[in-house]
Amino acid sequence: MIKEINATTRSNGLPIGGKEGDTTVNAVASWQSGYPMRTTFNRRFPDYDPFLNDSKRILANDESDLLIWVSSFNTAVTPPQSSANTIVLGRSGMQFETEPEVYIPVGVPGIDHEGRTFRSDSVVSVPLRKLRDSGLPSVFEVLSAVEQAL
């Protein structure tokens, strides 16, 4: 409808969505793989399917052995109940109903370390600055260390 109206006058829509960094993840996933989230790499290449690769569905159907849960913004965003082994890279201070197998507390981008994030309209990205020195590692640092160790 916006498209039609614009033929003669002005009309705009402002898409807004995403919190806890999902807009950012979607954008980065798109440029790195061509697809947004819910893309599987099972076949060695990116394969997008928003329904089959829905993590809630996968967990509900016991199709995963391992859940890696990354939540560096919000301590309230905890992993869903599942039978999969769970590793959490979570904001320091996260409380769990069910203890995950592994919990690595991480800092918050924009508080404990630098980062960049996409605004929820997915148009503009802003820098996140380090505000304090908590000594908490960033998700990037944790993952890099794991990669090094492998």
Binding site: G34, Y35, R43, F45, P46
Partner: peptide, 23 residues
């Protein structure tokens, strides 16, 4: 993307795209 799919290798990461390829 479906037209042009690149598998990962030991060295290269996977990707997709003909006209608008991944980075």
């Amino acid at each position: 993307h479906a037209e042009a799919v690149y598998e990962r290798t030991e060295l290269l990461r996977s990707g997709t795209g003909h006209a608008a390829p991944s980075t």
